[in-house]
Design a protein around this nucleic acid. Structure first.
Lengths: 209, 209
DNA sequence: TAGATTGTTAATCGATTAACAATC
DNA sequence: TAGATTGTTAATCGATTAACAATC
């Protein structure tokens, strides 16, 4: 399938391709050329063809790409059907919003547990999932073997919780805490989401107007 | 101050520099060399010096950089004190979480209004700001002249609301909707936040383990 | 077949890294 | 002064774009 290692630039574009192709499929567009897709996504046709050919020849000369087929291929590459068991730590405003707002299932994840250190939240339900106390993480992980953890906790707690979760077999972190998580272990992946940085970038660009 | 146009790669690193320097300042670190900062941030010393010299010579040979001073300079470049009047459209789970979770003030923005199309939410308060009905946007903008809009609305509504806000003088969008907002007007800036894409990237990286 | 459009190689462009003279 | 570390130029690396032969 692949030809060597795929660059992170390419990987970060894949979800966007997947999204646009989903939209096209919904509009019952059967096929699309790299040129048309490029115009739609504000990329170059060249880049699209280069990107897709990292994974294989999904197109056909003189025809273009079959939308449904291409979307399915990219979905497979991304792993949208993996259903990785996922837990969330921290059920404050942000945690609750993420839990109910993000469609984990369509992104290869299945949210199966939510934990918070505040006992007052225990028993509350978010996205049909009961909030458990942080003390129960060990027992829960032992039983359900989650692979991914979403961290919606204060930055002070992040380092420590992450270590604890690695011990329990967590392989990936989707980190919303105000802390740049970098795990030393090489077989752990981290995606840091810094919403504040994103806003600050916007502010910078407003200055430039 | 600047030397020509700054590349987006550099700009996107600025908030992270600002964050790390804030942390160092809090720990009462007075000065730091590009080498030490690079080790901390997992960058190269070369890159840090290159980045900073896009804006001017903030360091001193043989000494390094004064932490507080450098942070202040970067803060000024980013515009952390601008206090751009900002409104939010959409007060669902995500909107409420963003409004209460993000410190707008420390990022050059001042959240002054929240709007939702659901009349049941009107009057509710989030982050000390009353939720208004979407119908009141025009009157509010006429009076308060907001510059930035945070969009936490469904993708179907985004295009239209954005156009309406541009008419009302909004210059920048922080867009959380499931829609790639691209404004044709050249004097409008957009920061699309696609949390779903971020999760999907994580899923891809988990597959690779 | 003729037209369209891919897959892929080559050229260009930009960003990162290395090196080192300047200087605090 | 000697040591450290910057600012900056040059070298390298990688990513994007252009071009075109292959082919549906």
């Amino acid at each position: 399938m692949s030809k060597g290692t795929i660059s992170v630039s390419v990987i970060k574009r894949l979800p966007r391709y997947y999204r646009f192709l989903g939209e096209l499929e919904k509009q019952r567009v059967e096929r699309i050329s790299s040129g048309k897709l490029a115009a739609l996504m504000k990329l170059t046709a060249s880049q699209i063809r280069q990107d897709l050919n990292c994974f294989g020849g999904f197109g056909q000369q003189g025809y273009g790409y079959n939308v449904a087929e291409l979307r399915a291929e990219i979905g497979k590459i991304l792993g949208v059907d993996k259903g990785y068991p996922t837990i969330m730590i921290g059920a404050g405003n942000l945690g609750k919003a993420i839990a109910s707002h993000i469609n984990f299932e369509s992104r290869g994840c299945k949210l199966i547990g939510i934990f918070d250190i505040n006992p007052k939240l225990t028993g509350e339900t978010v996205a049909d999932i009961p909030i458990r106390h942080t003390d129960d993480i060990e027992a829960f992980c032992g039983e359900h073997k989650p692979v991914i953890a979403v961290l919606c906790i204060p930055k002070e707690a992040t380092r420590q919780i992450a270590e604890r979760l690695v011990e329990l077999g967590i392989k990936a972190f989707w980190n919303y805490s105000h802390y740049d998580l970098t795990i030393e272990h090489s077989d752990i992946v981290v995606e840091n989401v810094h919403l504040g940085d994103s806003l600050l970038t916007l502010t910078y660009n407003v200055n430039a107007l």
